[in-house]
Each structure stands twice: as C-alpha cells, then as structure tokens.
Amino acid sequence: MLFFSFFRTLVDQELKNGIEVKGFLKSMDQYLNLKLDNISMITDEVKFPQLVAVRNLFIRGSMVRYIHLNPQSISTDLLQDASRRGK
C-alpha cells in the first residue's frame, strides 16, 4: 500500500467535476476511495454551505482526478523506496 506512507499528510485533491477538497488523509483503499478529516477548503462554498458541519468526508475513488501532496510534507526518499519495492 504505497499511499499508506502519506497517511496523515495534508492532501489537496480535485474531483472530476472541478471540486477541490483539502484535508488530512485518514484512510484509503484499493479503489482509491479516500477518507478525509478536517476538511478545510472546497472551491465552491456557495454550493456547500453544509461543509462547516462535516466531520469527515468519504470520497469515491472513481470521481478523483488527482491528489496533490505538499512537497514539504512528503519524503521523496520514502516515496522512491515504496515505489520500487513493488509489494
């Protein structure tokens, strides 16, 4: 589980319909379904006023376009190691 290395780092991701979400990665699975904590930002606040009351967010992997990780919070060495181990 490569992405396990990034657990508890801040991720910023965009979904296929242009929504952008930011939060702490809490868990993920084989389908790239994600669970985020502390949702701090979303592009369209008009459309999601309920977001202040959200405790955690489950995002279906099929709707994810990309996940962005802050370069300061990841270790490239660890990432290289994890990708090459091929487990």
């Binding site: 979904l15 949702i39 309920q50 009351a53 405790r55 955690n56 967010l57 995002i59």
Partner: peptide
C-alpha cells in the same frame, strides 16, 4: 447506486443548521 456517489460526509448535528441561518 455507488457509481453515482461523489462524496459522503458525516454531519455534526450540533452545527448542521448553523450555515443555513443566513440563507
């Protein structure tokens, strides 16, 4: 049906009406 779900969030019932007050 799962394929139609984009995201799902758990709501804090103490805070859920808060944002709607100004609507």
């Amino acid at each position: 049906r799962g394929e139609n779900v984009t995201m799902m969030g758990e709501l804090d019932i103490d805070k859920e009406d808060q944002p709607m007050e100004s609507f």
